[in-house]
């Protein structure tokens, strides 16, 4: 096996909250190989964006280590971190909040090229315009400010900004959620092309399981701060082992509007509080198969065939 491009080892992130600690990410280990796309799915609030922010070093982990291309960023010097930053880029879940409101789109896109001394002025302009076009935006957008765009246009600016430096890996946090199906197809096709041509690796977070399936080589499923199952795409969809993964897949709506009125199997109950997660297996209060053991003993991730799963019953 090739050395991973990104490696998270037993990463923990706790946030202080009134009455305790939010265990947003709790002992997560993940790897992404060069050129690979790892999908990350799970209910709202399970810790996906926190994980993405940890990877980007927007805040330090409470525990554990994160290695990019073999360099541990918690201990690396400034030059190594700068290099890592240009090789690893992120598309944020809230596009507006991630764009500087006082800069034009052209300037926002050009800035990383200036900072990293890539190309002359004309070359930079060409790159900005070419990338705008690839995400379906007209060149006139470059003169506008972020508030003068639509939601989906801003999201595409975020994608273009993440790609402008030719990163080796991109973290996409709900990166296509504000796009209509045709523009979404255009952006996803662009990511697929960059993967095929330049070996772009990705951590791909989305609530849209059909999109995750289309884009990912492997998929990790999170529940309440923990990874509960991880497998290659086909194993995960054909033979999901964790009851939570099965529930997620069963609840996926058909993308075909005509089939939408069909009944779906919905997961019952709500995501428990991450401040005071259930003892034993965190999923047990909602699990249709729960046994007495599940209430007492937290299952560890273990290998079953091609899959890693944290369930006593798998």
């Amino acid at each position: 096996m090739t050395a991973p491009l990104l490696e998270m080892r037993r990463v923990v992130k706790h946030f202080p909250a009134n009455g305790g600690m939010v265990r947003a990410v709790d002992d997560v280990s993940l790897q992404v190989a060069p050129g690979e796309t790892l999908g990350l799915v799970g209910e709202s609030g399970c810790g996906k964006s926190t994980l993405a922010r940890l990877v980007m070093r927007l805040f330090p982990p409470s525990d554990g280590s994160i290695l990019f291309d073999g360099t541990d960023l918690t201990t690396a010097d400034r030059a190594a971190v700068a290099e890592y930053r240009s090789g690893l880029q992120m598309v944020f879940q809230d596009p507006f909040a991630s764009l500087n409101p006082r800069e034009t789109i052209g300037r926002i896109l050009e800035q990383p090229l200036v900072v990293h001394r890539r190309g002359g002025r004309a070359e930079r302009r060409d790159r900005v315009n070419a990338l705008l076009e690839r995400v379906g935006l007209r060149p006139e957008i470059a003169a506008r400010y972020p508030h003068e765009l639509s939601g989906g246009q801003r999201q595409r600016v975020g994608i273009a900004r993440a790609l402008i430096l030719h990163p080796r890996m991109i973290v996409c946090d709900e990166a296509v959620s504000a796009l209509d199906v045709s523009v979404r197809a255009q952006v996803l096709n662009l990511l697929l092309e960059l993967r095929a041509e330049l070996g772009l690796a990705a951590l791909f977070i989305s609530h849209d399981l059909a999109v995750v399936r289309h884009m990912s080589d492997r998929v990790a499923v999170m529940y309440l701060g923990e990874v509960v199952e991880q497998a290659d795409r086909d194993s995960l969809w054909d033979r999901p082992l964790h009851p939570y993964t099965r529930a997620l897949i069963a609840a996926t709506p058909s993308t075909s509007p005509a089939a939408r009125r069909r009944e779906r199997l919905m997961l019952q109950g709500d995501l428990p509080s991450p401040i005071d997660p259930p003892r034993g297996c965190r999923f047990h209060p909602r699990c249709p198969l729960a046994q007495p053991r599940c209430r007492e003993e937290a299952p560890a991730l273990r290998r079953v065939g091609a899959t890693e799963v944290a369930c006593h019953l798998a």
């Binding site: 209509d180 199906v181 045709s182 523009v183 979404r184 197809a185 255009q186 996803l188 096709n189 697929l192 059909a210 999109v211 399936r213 289309h214 884009m215 990912s216 795409r233 058909s254 993308t255 075909s256 509007p257």
Partner: peptide
Amino acid sequence: RGLLDAVRIEELPPGSRLPEI
């Protein structure tokens, strides 16, 4: 019609090019 054609992501092989307008 183009919008409705573009929606069919689950019917395509994973990783394949998606229809766009």
